[in-house]
């Protein structure tokens, strides 16, 4: 039964909310081409819209398949996403030239994935501390104090973002009803970006943080916060029915948290890129830039949302038995 929960497709649509969210995503992606054809845009803009649409189809597929496929695929998927994001971060910051530090971060990210696969919550919670000890401790052996603070600082920042923070989304899959919760978070974070962009274009004048991100406006940020909260409250109703997250106050809190921290994650990456003097962190996703340019908004949302939902009783993690190490 555990192996079915982990690797089986049988329960993919066990929760009705999963059907609604997946159906909605598929419907939007399927209708977008018609909208692009109807809009009387210039050819260059239209080409750009097609490029972004194709990227979104790939992103949706890459995220949806493992989540529907089972807890094991989901946890592995987020661990691999963490490694891929770290690789991009390390190449953008230059930390990749520090082989030992980078290897320590990679080990930390993989260990976070292992804690998820093992459903070992204690180890999962211990990993930020253990990862710090690994990165700060092992790299002393290089006996190269020049630049130590910088490489440990960059390494720990990377591990906390792509191991710990992203790892929360993987670990969440240990809850028997994880599918609609994860899908709700991903959809809300994704649309939060879209809301900020659209509202900002339509109504914004006053800049939010002009030195960090010249295109973001206060109106866009507030509009996105409002719309995202409404979205989470609405979608959260069926998703959290019968759990401690069902009350309106809890769903509003989750919505505000996604709205604020999603935009904070976006601005965090903007700050990093501006500090480095680069425009995109990579060239992986046509029309979007690098992987990080797409995943940034998830990073700060993941741990906060996970613990809010858990504290409110929205996550139960089944019986809590460790699957690989036992006990």
């Amino acid at each position: 039964m555990e192996s079915d929960r982990f690797w089986g497709w049988g329960a993919a649509f066990a929760e009705p909310a999963t059907i609604w969210i997946v159906g909605g995503v598929v419907a939007v992606l399927a209708c977008a081409p018609i909208a692009i054809l109807l809009v009387g845009a210039e050819p260059a803009l239209r080409t750009e819209m097609w490029r972004r649409w194709r990227s979104w189809v790939v992103i949706a597929g890459v995220l949806l398949l493992p989540i529907l496929g089972g807890a094991g695929w989901t946890i592995l998927g987020f661990a691999l996403l963490g490694i891929a994001c770290y690789r991009e971060y390390a190449r953008a910051t230059g930390l990749f030239r520090e082989r030992l530090t980078s290897a320590c971060v990679a080990v930390g990210i993989l260990a976070t994935g292992f804690a998820g696969l093992d459903a070992w919550y204690g180890f999962f919670l211990a990993l930020p501390g253990l990862g710090l000890a690994l990165i700060a401790g092992l790299t002393i052996l290089e006996d190269r104090p020049a630049g130590y603070i910088q490489r440990v600082g960059l390494g720990v920042f990377g591990f906390l973002l792509f191991g710990t923070a992203l790892g929360h989304l993987g670990y969440l899959a240990n809850d028997p009803g994880y599918r609609p919760i994860l899908l709700l978070l991903l959809v809300a974070v994704g649309l939060n970006d879209v809301f900020a962009f659209v509202v900002g274009k339509a109504a914004g004048r006053a800049k939010l943080l002009p030195a960090t991100s010249p295109n973001k406006t206060i109106a866009g940020a507030l509009g996105a916060l409002l719309l995202t909260t409404l979205l989470v409250v609405g979608l959260g109703g069926p998703v959290f029915a019968g759990t401690g997250m069902e009350p309106l106050g809890a769903r509003i809190a989750l919505g505000v948290l996604v709205g604020v921290l999603g935009q904070a994650g976006d601005l965090m990456l903007s700050s990093v890129k501006r500090d480095l003097g680069i425009k995109d962190t990579g060239v992986l996703i046509p029309g979007h830039g690098g992987l990080l340019d797409r995943c940034n908004s998830l990073l700060l949302v993941a741990p906060a949302a996970f613990h809010l939902i858990r504290v409110m009783g929205g996550l139960t993690f089944g019986g809590g038995a460790r699957l690989i190490t036992g006990g």
């Binding site: 190449r91 910051t93 230059g94 990749f96 030239r97 910088q150 490489r151 680069i278 962190t281 060239v283």
Partner: peptide, 15 residues
Amino acid sequence: MTWRFRPARDLDLAP
């Protein structure tokens, strides 16, 4: 203390 890190030389290149 000077900042010691620079982005990869090939950051803007596709695989």
